[in-house]
C-alpha cells in the first residue's frame, strides 16, 4: 500500500471512530456536578478527530496521482496485502493463549506458546531440523517453569496454576 492509500483508509477509520465516540456519549448518565459534565470531553475529542480525519483524507485525495506513481514503483509483493502466515498465526496464538490460560495454567500455556512462537520467528523450515527442535523445546519448557517458580518463591506472586494446581 502506498502512503496515500494508507492515509485514506486511516482517515475513514477515524471518521467512523469519532462517530462511535459521539453516539456512545449519549449513553453516559447526565451529571450536574460541573458545568461541562462527563459528556463534554468525549464529544470534543470526537469533533476534533473528525476534523483531523477529514484533513487526512483531503490530503491523500489531493496527492492521489503521486500515490499512484509510488504504488506503481513498488514491487508487486508489497503492493497488495497478502496473507502473511507468521503474522496471522502469531495473533491467533496470542488470543489462544489468553483463552486457555485460566484452564491450563501458566506453565503449560506459556510453554506451548513459546514453542510455537519461536518457530514462527525462526527461518522457515527450522521445524524439520532436530537441533532447533531440541533447543526450542528446552528453552520454552525451561523458561515457563523458571518464571512460574521465580515469581512464586521469590516474590510470592501466584500465577494461574490451572490443571497443575
Amino acid at each position: 500500500m502506498s502512503n496515500g492509500r494508507k492515509n485514506l483508509y486511516s482517515g475513514i477509520f477515524f471518521i467512523l471512530f469519532s462517530a462511535f465516540l459521539f453516539i456512545e456519549s449519549f449513553n453516559i448518565k447526565m451529571s450536574t456536578a460541573d458545568a461541562l459534565g462527563p459528556q463534554f470531553f468525549p464529544r470534543l475529542v470526537a469533533f476534533l478527530m473528525l476534523v483531523l480525519a477529514l484533513i487526512l483524507i483531503f490530503l491523500s485525495v489531493k496527492n492521489w496521482n503521486q500515490a499512484k506513481a509510488e504504488e506503481a514503483a513498488m514491487p508487486a509483493e508489497k503492493r497488495k496485502i497478502t496473507f502473511n502466515f507468521p503474522l496471522v498465526a502469531s495473533i491467533v496464538l496470542l488470543l489462544a493463549y489468553f483463552l486457555v490460560l485460566q484452564h491450563l495454567g501458566f506453565m503449560i500455556s506459556t510453554a506451548v506458546y513459546l514453542f510455537c512462537q519461536m518457530f514462527l520467528l525462526l527461518p522457515q523450515g527450522s521445524f524439520k531440523k532436530p537441533r532447533y527442535l531440541v533447543i526450542v523445546t528446552l528453552v520454552s519448557v525451561g523458561l515457563s517453569v523458571f518464571i512460574y517458580y521465580l515469581f512464586l518463591l521469590a516474590f510470592s506472586i501466584f500465577l494461574p496454576a490451572g490443571i497443575l494446581g
Binding site: N7, S10, F14, F17, L21, E24, S25, I28, K29, S31, A33, D34, G37, P38, F41, P42, V45, L48, M49, L52, A53, I55, L56, L59
Partner: peptide, 30 residues
C-alpha cells in the same frame, strides 16, 4: 502532525473508558 494529533486523540479516547472521576458514572464500558 495530523497523524500525531489523531494518535493522541485516540489515546485520550481510550482513557475515557471506565469511571469518570468527577461524576462517578462509568463511560464507554459497553
Amino acid at each position: 502532525i495530523v497523524k500525531g494529533l489523531l494518535s493522541c486523540l485516540l489515546g485520550i479516547s481510550f482513557a475515557f473508558v471506565g469511571i469518570d472521576k468527577l461524576s462517578a458514572y462509568t463511560r464507554y464500558t459497553m
